[in-house]
Design a protein around this nucleic acid. Structure first.
Lengths: 275, 275
DNA sequence: TCGAATTTGTGCGTATGTATC
DNA sequence: GGATACATACGCACAAATTCG
C-alpha cells in the first residue's frame, strides 16, 4: 500500500483495517441478531425489548455492550427507547414522501397521487424573519458580490413545519436578496397579502418570473439543535436539500431544507431526453 | 443525594458536578468544543489530536467519555482515527456531485459545467449479471404480477463503480423484467453490441422508447458489506436512490444506487411551472 | 398520594487485543 | 522489539424518568 500524501494514507489505511476485521465486535453481532429478530417480525412493532440487564444475561455480555448495540439500532430507526420505561420496537419507519418534482402523472396506484394528497393536508408551521448580512456560502449561492460594510443584504426566514398528528418534521432556512425585494410588498415573506404563497407567486407579484430551480441533496448527522427540534435522537441522520430558485440567470432565493432521513424520502421525476 | 459508605470521595465530587451540568452530557459538550476548534480552523485538516489519555486529562473526563465524543465527530466526518497512530482532523469532505437531472445549462461559473466534466472522466466498473425471481419489493416497483412457481423473471446486474484515482464510490443493483428482454440482443446488459450503453439506448434497440424516470432518495446507515465495498467506516451514512425508468406506464427497469453521503451530493434541477 | 422498584443514559476506572511508530 | 494509541469490553455506580402497588 502506497503512502504518499497525508490524506490518502489516512483513508487508505482506515479502509484496509476495516477489511482485515473479519470477525465483528460483540456489540455488532448482538445488534445483528436483534435486527434480524426485528425485521423478521419475531419482535413485532411496539413490543418492548428485554431490559438491558436481561439482555446482558441473555447474550452473556456487559451492559455497556448491550447499550452500544441498541444505540446502533436506534440510529437505524428500528428502536425507540424511553428512559425509565424501556426500549421498544419502532413502527415500520413508514416514510413520508416529499415530492420535489414531477412532470406528469403516473399510474393511479403509484405513490404520486397519495403523496400529493398527503402534502395537501396542511399542518402548522412557525417562522421567524430578519434581515442580516449574508454569510459567504449564501453569497455564493445567490451570486451576491462583496459585502458592503455591515449593510444587511438578505432576508432570512427560518421555518419549522409540523404535521397535525405528529411533531415537527421539517426545518428550513430561506434567504432572499434584499436588492430584489426591499421596499416591495413581499419583502417580508410571511406578512401582507402574499404571505405564505411560495417564492414563485411572491416574486411574480413584483414582476419577477421564476423559471428554474436547482436542488443539491446530501445527508449527514443531525446537529444537536436539529435533533432537538425534530424530535429525533442525537446522532440521527438528516437529509439536507439546498434549493435555489432562478429567474433566468438570477438567483432569487436559496433555501436549506432539513428532514429526518428515518421518516422521509425525496421524490423526483422527469422526462427522458429533455432539452 | 445519598452517599453510602462505599462511595469514594472522588465519585461523590463527580456526582455533584453532574447535577450542575444536566443540560448536556459531557461527551456532547466535549464534542461541541472539539468541533468548534476544527471548523474554526484552529485545528487544521491533517493535524493530529491529542491522544485519548491527554484529552481525558485536558477535559477532566474518563477515556470512555472522550471516546464517545470523538466517535460522534467521526460519524460527522470531521475526524479519522487510526489505531496505534492517533486521531486526525479530516480534510474538508469535498463532495462529488452526481448530476441526476438538468433541463438547461446554467451560468458558466456554476457547478454544472464542472460536474458534467467530472462525470465525463470515466473510471472503471465491475459488474455481475444473473437471472432470478424478483423479490416482492422489486415486483412492485416493476409492476410484475404474482410469481410463476420458481420461474426466473428478472435480470439482476450489480455494479461497482470506481474512479481512477480513488477507490469505489458507487454501488448499484439493476433489475430488468425478462418479459421484455428475454431472447433479445440486450438481455444481458453488459454483453453484446449494446453493452454498457445505458437503459435508454438498450431499450431503444428493441423498439422500446423510455420516456420518463422516477427517483426516490433517502439515507441510512451503511450495511457492513456496503461499508467494506465503499471503503468507508462502519456506521457511515449512505444515500440510496431508487430509480425507475418507464416507457409510458410500463416500468422497464428499476435500480438501487448507493453512494457514501460523506463524499457525494445529488444534483437535480428543472423548470418551474412545467406540466 | 407517595414511595419503592425498574430502566435507560451517562459516567468512572480498568484491562486486553491489535495496529502503528 | 518496545512504547504508544485506538477499539472494545468488563463491572460498577448514579441521576432522571417511568411504572406500579
Amino acid at each position: 500500500m502506497q503512502l504518499d500524501g497525508r490524506t490518502h494514507s489516512l483513508q487508505a489505511a482506515y479502509a484496509a483495517r476495516q477489511a482485515v476485521f473479519v470477525d465483528q465486535p460483540a456489540y455488532v453481532r448482538i445488534a445483528n441478531d436483534l435486527r434480524a429478530r426485528i425485521v423478521s417480525g419475531q419482535l413485532a412493532a411496539g413490543t418492548r425489548l428485554p431490559s438491558r440487564q436481561e439482555l446482558a444475561v441473555e447474550y452473556d455480555a456487559a451492559q455497556g455492550v448491550i447499550s452500544e448495540a441498541t444505540k446502533l439500532l436506534t440510529r437505524e430507526g428500528l428502536l425507540v427507547s424511553r428512559p425509565g420505561a424501556g426500549m421498544f420496537v419502532r413502527q415500520r419507519p413508514q416514510r413520508r414522501s416529499l415530492v420535489r418534482s414531477w412532470f406528469r402523472e403516473r399510474q393511479a396506484g403509484s405513490p404520486f397521487r397519495q403523496q400529493m394528497e398527503e402534502q395537501g393536508r396542511r399542518g402548522s408551521w412557525e417562522y421567524a424573519s430578519e434581515t442580516l448580512q449574508a454569510p459567504a456560502e449564501v453569497r455564493e449561492r445567490l451570486g451576491l458580490g462583496e459585502p458592503d460594510g455591515d449593510r444587511h443584504d438578505v432576508m432570512r426566514t427560518t421555518y419549522t413545519f409540523s404535521s397535525d398528528d405528529e411533531g415537527p418534521w421539517m426545518l428550513s432556512t430561506s434567504w432572499e436578496p434584499l436588492e430584489l425585494t426591499k421596499g416591495t410588498p413581499i419583502a417580508w415573506p410571511e406578512a401582507g397579502e402574499h404571505a405564505g404563497l411560495g417564492v414563485t407567486h411572491r416574486m411574480a407579484a413584483i414582476g419577477i418570473t421564476v423559471d428554474a430551480w436547482d436542488e443539491e441533496v446530501w445527508a449527514r448527522v443531525a446537529s444537536p439543535e436539529e435533533a432537538k427540534h425534530l424530535g429525533i435522537g442525537a446522532g440521527s441522520i438528516v437529509m439536507v436539500v439546498e434549493r435555489s430558485y432562478f429567474a433566468g440567470e438570477l438567483a432569487v432565493e436559496t433555501c436549506d431544507i432539513v428532514v429526518p432521513a428515518e421518516t422521509t424520502k425525496l421524490v423526483y421525476n422527469g422526462p427522458v431526453g429533455d432539452s
